[in-house]
């Protein structure tokens, strides 16, 4: 069993019955992307983030986003040290390998964008000084569905920064029963042993970039993208960044399967995560494609594999 599989198994022992989402989250991580978990409160969003970080042996910070959160609360602040007669930088929670931005859509856009800029640039600039963020750097944001009160929905341009958005959903009846019967999740989390070193994760990330995507496969990716651009079912088509994300995620997914080449099934597997938050269906299509899975299934069904 490879190390990454051990990670998947360990996380799966805590988040019950969500293997697919866990693998997606891992693929997202391996593809050097950030992850957005959207669901109603209490389905284990935070637990998932926590378990992932712990299993991968990464240090972890949690930021609870609230409407009065300021950018400095995220990035850190320079404080005057009277002993040394100068300003000293106190790094914020962003300076960690895994950042859990909990309920990101409760914060004001100003604070949201502070985090999102850091995600994109892998660095923050405070008081004129640029500071690099650690590597690997991985943001797991959670958000409540935007129809809940007290939310500032992320604009589309910022949603695009997340490689994937996954929905955990309620557990199945068996998982639910196991959950009810089993130990406290928090105790389990504390007992997690890291399965791999951060350096090993970096190697995996590099390997993922080398997974081969043949012309035939890229034809398929392009066919999918072109369909979203031409079809009247979507408000707007997928951006080139989305296409890139799709290819990267598919590569990572193939690597999780221990393959050195991408097959169409990989693309289809990561599609719900990659396009769910990037495509908004229009009109009648909006009614029947409520979830990311629906949007992806509809897209898959309407494009033939070349």
């Amino acid at each position: 069993m490879t190390k990454i599989e051990q990670v998947a198994q360990q996380v799966g022992a805590i988040i019950l019955g969500k293997q697919q989402q866990i693998r997606l989250a891992l693929a997202c991580l391996i593809a050097r992307g950030h992850l957005l978990i959207e669901d109603v409160p209490g389905v284990g969003k935070t637990t998932l983030a926590h378990a992932l970080a712990a299993s991968l042996g990464l240090n972890f910070h949690r930021i609870q986003f609230t409407s009065d959160l300021l950018p400095a609360d995220v990035l850190g602040v320079a404080v005057y040290n009277s002993d040394r007669s100068k300003f000293e930088f106190h790094p914020g929670p962003i300076f960690s390998q895994v950042v859990l931005a909990d309920e990101i859509n409760r914060a004001t856009p100003k604070s949201q964008s502070a985090l999102l800029e850091a995600m994109e640039e892998h660095q923050v600039t405070i008081e004129g000084e640029t500071r690099r963020l650690p590597d690997p750097f991985f943001v797991i944001a959670t958000q409540n569905p935007s129809h809940q009160i007290g939310t500032f929905p992320l604009p589309e341009s910022q949603l695009d920064r997340f490689l994937m958005r996954i929905e955990l959903g309620y557990p199945g009846p068996e998982a639910e029963r196991a959950l009810l019967r089993g130990e406290n999740r928090r105790d389990l989390l504390e007992r997690i042993q890291p399965c791999m070193q951060p350096a090993e994760l970096l190697v995996l990330q590099r390997e993922a970039q080398q997974v081969h995507a043949s012309d035939a496969l890229l034809d398929y990716v392009q066919a999918l993208i072109n369909h979203t651009r031409r079809s009247a079912d979507y408000v707007s088509g997928l951006s080139p960044r989305a296409g890139l994300a799709l290819a990267q995620a598919a590569r990572a997914w193939a690597l999780l399967d221990a393959r050195k080449h991408v097959v169409p099934e990989d693309v289809q597997a990561v599609l719900p995560g990659v396009v769910g938050h990037r495509l908004s269906p229009t009109g009648a299509a909006r009614e029947i494609t409520a979830t990311s899975a629906d949007i992806a299934a509809r897209l898959i069904a309407s494009v033939a594999i070349p």
Binding site: P264, E265, Q268, I300, A301, V303, A304, I305
Partner: peptide, 9 residues
């Protein structure tokens, strides 16, 4: 085989 069915599926 469906049009959108991958070979492995």
């Amino acid at each position: 085989r469906g049009d959108a069915e991958g070979p492995q599926d």
